[in-house]
Design a protein around this nucleic acid. Sequence first.
DNA 1: AACGTTTCCGAAAACGTTTCCGGAAATTTT
DNA 2: AAAATTTCCGGAAACGTTTTCGGAAACGTT
Lengths: 338, 338
Amino acid sequence: MKHVTIKDVAKALNCSISTVSRAFNNKYDIHPDTREKILKMALEMGYSPNPIARKLTQQKTYNIGIVVPEFINPFFPEVIIGIQDVFLKKGYQTLIMQSNEDSNTELENIKTLENNFVDGIILSLSQKSQNIEYIQALIKKNYPIVLFNRINDSLPVSKVVFDDYKWAFFATEHLIQQGLKKIIHLTGPMQHNFAKNRAKGFEDAHRKYGIKISHEQFIETGLLIEDGEQIIEHLIKIKNLPDGIFAVNDPTALGAMRALKRNGIKIPQDIAIAGFSETPMAALVDPPLTSVLQPTTHMGEVAAELLYEQIISDSLAIPNTVVLSGKLNIRESSKRLK
Amino acid sequence: MKHVTIKDVAKALNCSISTVSRAFNNKYDIHPDTREKILKMALEMGYSPNPIARKLTQQKTYNIGIVVPEFINPFFPEVIIGIQDVFLKKGYQTLIMQSNEDSNTELENIKTLENNFVDGIILSLSQKSQNIEYIQALIKKNYPIVLFNRINDSLPVSKVVFDDYKWAFFATEHLIQQGLKKIIHLTGPMQHNFAKNRAKGFEDAHRKYGIKISHEQFIETGLLIEDGEQIIEHLIKIKNLPDGIFAVNDPTALGAMRALKRNGIKIPQDIAIAGFSETPMAALVDPPLTSVLQPTTHMGEVAAELLYEQIISDSLAIPNTVVLSGKLNIRESSKRLK
DNA sequence: AACGTTTCCGAAAACGTTTCCGGAAATTTT
DNA sequence: AAAATTTCCGGAAACGTTTTCGGAAACGTT
């Protein structure tokens, strides 16, 4: 692939390559007439600066790494779209890596991005991430990093999270207000902040209504459809079904619904259910699932702005945590009372 | 960000940078002992070659561009995973771009990748793509390109497609065998090959059973959930419902189902329905949707291998079209007969 | 021992751009 | 008019690596 180079333009105009470079980089020390002449000739010749050479000279790649735990569930693609929108406008390209919910793959992804000298990384941790120390070492080297959604409190970097506590509280409150007597919470992996906060919201909503709660009502699960299914099958087997379910996310809720329906249990008449994070599936299943809506694209935008600030700032970044709010979409799955 | 360079390693060992380079690139003209000594020292010093400098020297970026029309629907993420798996093993990184089903965004994405000197592009066209001529010009410049799924026959490049005709035929046959008298086909945008082939399969299945078919039974739609919904609302309004629906893809089918249920129409008793491309949603809705399964990850792998062959081949590539097969997953949505 | 071949290393140039510095010309100030 | 300052350009060096070529040393053949 033979491209027009800066040398070709300089030769065509009988000037130096420094002058061509100055024209393209808005330098103060070039005459406006010269600049115009160069830009015009470059356009005619189809020249534009080689980004690879620029990256080498400027020691910046204008690449941003995005590491997500998976991207089949639309949550992460939606966040990525937000990130991309912001960084594309600033002339950056995004390298998207997904970790298949696997800690080792996640580590390889991070290393690959590091080896590619990306200017920064936006990261959401996989379920069973073992990579905190590695990330800590990167942060120590002042490597620009922003965490979103699945974070770890011990990492001193900027973070974008959702108000899991508040909205779990509201969702649980809504379930309590349906007259439910025994609600269980499918928590997701409790090593993660979002899971802890949602569980806390679940617990405190009970406290508000003076309802005693037992630790049996917290069931630690994975985050997938299959995880929800398995729990329900288990609860059926030991004849210990609740009358309400608050699930950590929509896939878990959808899996639970599937198992309930397969066993002839009516939703919401026998068991009411609410999910979290509002996938498109929520509105499509029967009955439509009550779910907390998270502002995914906006989360991506905020994460991108935080990372950009870090990149352009020479001084040591002061970590900033942005907490986003949402909405409770009440649908048929949880409506016991009219 | 100060990195260890090849100069640091050469200095530490009192040898030349050429020798260090030879050690890292498995050159024939370096002594094995020397090579080992260098690799060991590099490991201790934390040195690895700067990929940016490599890209400049070797005139290859080891970046592959992937352009998909959208990535909220899991179909494209699954294909991307297949592509990534193949190229990561070959030392390539993938730049994923998505076009929001917009022709202009798609063109910008292609240009961005071109400007980043990616070694090749794997591309699936957006719904209303107007970029055929631009892509044609890239192909003329011998730019490695592979199309998948949403292709255009006039582009002389390698392609990976699914046997839309055959499986549309089988899905329609299955519907016909349920005793349906009037089946409509929601076609998707008929400018695309996949839509044309699925429509042809639909038509020829009728022909096989000697069933007359009218052009009213082909309804051109978009590809989204909302598109399916709108068509059903329209057909209800003009009191022209069929007893069977063959939809171009699952989102369209799911949208149709949603509108049918909202209007108290029973699936499959009143109207049977089959989709195409087997999203996870198909098995989760009520009733579970009959759908043609496409081998998404495998499609990505095949596309990647085709592109790789093109990249490493110096001679003019001979376009190759690979046609993949699938499976018809029959579920409750289409079962009229036991 | 002399000659030819092979091995393995170092130096220089290349990749395409940006940055820095010096010098010449033009302009302004004294 | 002379001196000081500003403008604007070209050349050289830098970025970090790979590739090419030449030369010295070791080895093999005559």
